[in-house]
Design a protein around this nucleic acid. Structure first.
Lengths: 212, 212
DNA sequence: GTCTATACGGCGATAGAC
DNA sequence: GTCTATCGCCGTATAGAC
């Protein structure tokens, strides 16, 4: 019975290594920014999601803007790493695979929705081109994705563009919250069905949906 | 020389009929919301754009949220009216027209970018699905567009979906500000070129672009 | 129809204790 | 490494004059 510590629920937060705490905050911020956008999210909402105090969030990242930039970089990194994984798996597979690369990349993209923060925080950055710092990051990231598709997946420019178009459509569908009204609106169901194909269940599962 | 009024620049605003003033504010708000998003825009920025006082903006629309909803409704109306115009023109034309409907609808969509407020304020609403009132309007508007394509343009569900996908891609390109760096980045130029086709000049002309 | 003045709340950020 | 307290700005909205 030496060093008995947390008998009942501890009120005071545990002491956690900075690096680990950073990642926890980034994950929470990713979610909050995804739902509310950069301007709409508050550092306090992020703090609550991460179960720490608001000043600590600011303390660790300097400013809200810097935090957003890190969230953006993290999301972009996860997205690109995921796509590269699919490409690598295709390279080492048989020459004429059953599933074309484009299709598997699309599926991998849709699977990313299991963490709603990734694609939606990216989407929010894209829409903020007017902001000097966020806009710059958004443009750079957007082009990075295009180059990955063109140079690493060996898509033609036209194919890369229409792949990204489908991606933006998917992001928009998720962002609007259409999947959450799937059961209550025939048109929404039809549109989602057509747009997502067999991967629709992944999307629906990831959207805390129910009638309304 | 009866009732000489504005010899030098008037300081005090002119008295303008409410209906007309409303439209002026809506147009300004459309622009500001398009650049900054709902949360990022302030009623004061809108007031300055419309050259009136901030309280008057609020007075006329009640709340910032109601103003945004009206901007959204106006944008949606303009978009749908534009698309219906194209459809109507095709109906009264020869049975086998030179230009397929899908293509002309796409061109009309791109032309809408001449008023940056329309498509971008819509885009900002789409991304705010989480908000109870704005999200609801966004979902409803998004589905209205889909239904128009399916029921009035007689697109198959798949064609309607991919038409909208291209639209979302276009919106995203504009929102990120990629057209503004057209001259300074080869990849951006290539992507824009491929995505917009012959209508690229419309986009570039509408984007106050220049190197950087 | 439009403005000035201002109340009021909220949010990002800083100071400093533990 | 984490918190509490708090400052100061900014933004929406209201009151009321002209």
């Amino acid at each position: 019975m030496s060093s008995v510590s947390k008998t009942t629920a501890e009120k005071t937060s545990e002491r956690i290594p900075a690096a680990q705490r950073r990642e926890m905050i980034l994950a929470s911020a990713s979610q909050v920014f995804a739902e509310r956008g950069y301007a709409g999210a508050t550092t306090d909402q992020i703090a609550q999601a991460a179960q720490i105090s608001q000043p600590y969030v600011v303390r660790m990242f300097g400013t809200k803007e810097k935090l957003f930039i890190e969230v953006h970089a993290r999301a972009l990194d996860i997205l690109m790493t995921t796509l590269r994984g699919v490409i690598a798996r295709h390279s080492e597979a048989d020459p004429a695979p059953e599933h074309p690369l484009a299709r598997d990349l699309g599926y991998a993209y849709i699977d990313l929705i299991n963490d709603r923060g990734i694609l939606l925080s990216l989407m929010h950055s894209f829409v903020l081109g007017h902001d000097p710092v966020i806009g710059a990051a958004a443009r750079s990231g957007f082009l990075d994705i295009y180059r990955l598709l063109r140079d690493e997946a060996h898509f033609s420019p036209a194919d890369a563009s229409s792949f990204m178009a489908q991606g933006m459509m998917f992001n928009t569908l998720v962002a609007t919250g259409l999947p959450t009204i799937y059961d209550s609106d025939d048109t929404a169901a039809e549109l989602l069905d057509i747009t997502c194909g067999p991967k629709l269940d992944t999307l629906l599962a990831a959207s805390g949906r129910g009638a309304i």
